[in-house]
């Protein structure tokens, strides 16, 4: 199957500090991928590079064979943490903004997801609880029609019901051909929806493995496997 994301020899420095080193990664069309690594491992930076938001890296990032920034922005949906928006902005205004800026944004689809997640649009960004903000990010991100969706730690500090709803909406609104990359530092909550697991460690891709293969080969949960890599237990075998 064709690769939707192709990263070759990607290195990124910021203020003379190495953030990511020699990243090589291929993600096939249609996959749901968990991007795992501890805080500060470079998960968000890698997403920003895939989305074409962060600049100044060496190496190539191709989305569906294209490596131009404009092409990447058109085919990658990434909302980050809505950092660019004024905290006093109302949610409905943010939605209008998405409609104006992204020709592929579907208001219809947004309304479906917002209804499912029960997003309250009358509020201002600063008034949103952590869970509600994450739901909004999911709604906005998944409402674009792109080849790649990036979700940066969508489960941080939110209750289990919201978490479940968010996971369900990922399954429900993911188109069969699109790639979804979900980053997290805590794995068990998303393990069951992943095709593949990509682990970032020591500023580079430590491994990429099929989730079912980890279960079949090691008789281990994804969480255990991930922890063993960070604890270095795998050095002994």
């Amino acid at each position: 199957m064709a690769n939707t994301i192709e990263i070759e020899n990607l290195t990124y420095h910021k203020n003379y500090r190495r953030i990511l080193e020699n990243i090589n990664l291929q993600i096939e069309q249609g996959k749901t991928v968990g991007l795992l690594g501890e805080n500060g491992a470079g998960k968000t930076t890698l997403m920003r590079l895939i989305a074409g938001v962060a600049k100044g890296a060496h190496g190539t990032v191709k989305i569906d064979g294209e490596d131009q920034v404009a092409a990447k922005k058109a085919e990658v949906s990434f909302s980050g943490q809505l950092d660019g928006f004024n905290p006093s902005m109302r949610i409905d205004k943010i939605i209008r903004f998405y409609e104006d800026v992204y020709p592929d944004f579907s208001t219809d689809r947004y309304n479906q997801i917002a209804g499912f997640l029960q997003i309250d649009e009358g509020l201002r960004l600063s008034a949103l609880s952590k869970g509600m903000k994450e739901k909004l990010v999911i709604g906005l991100t998944l409402s674009r029609d792109t080849k790649v969706y990036l979700l940066d730690e969508p489960f941080g500090g939110i209750d289990s019901m919201s978490r479940k709803k968010i996971i369900q909406s990922i399954i429900k609104w993911k188109s069969p051909d699109s790639v979804i990359v979900v980053s997290d530092h805590y794995v068990s909550e998303i393990a069951s929806i992943l095709d593949e697991v990509v682990i970032i460690k020591d500023k580079t891709i430590y491994t990429k493995k099929s989730a079912e293969e980890i279960r079949a080969q090691y008789a281990e949960g994804i969480e255990q496997y991930y922890e063993s890599i960070y604890e270095g237990n795998d050095l002994n075998d």
Binding site: Q168, I171, K172, S192, A211
Partner: peptide, 17 residues
């Protein structure tokens, strides 16, 4: 397939397999 995936909270590809 998709409904089963949602009901079981698992990946669509896994259900398909």
């Amino acid at each position: 397939v998709r409904q089963l995936a949602i009901d079981l909270t698992v990946n669509v590809n896994t259900v398909q397999r």
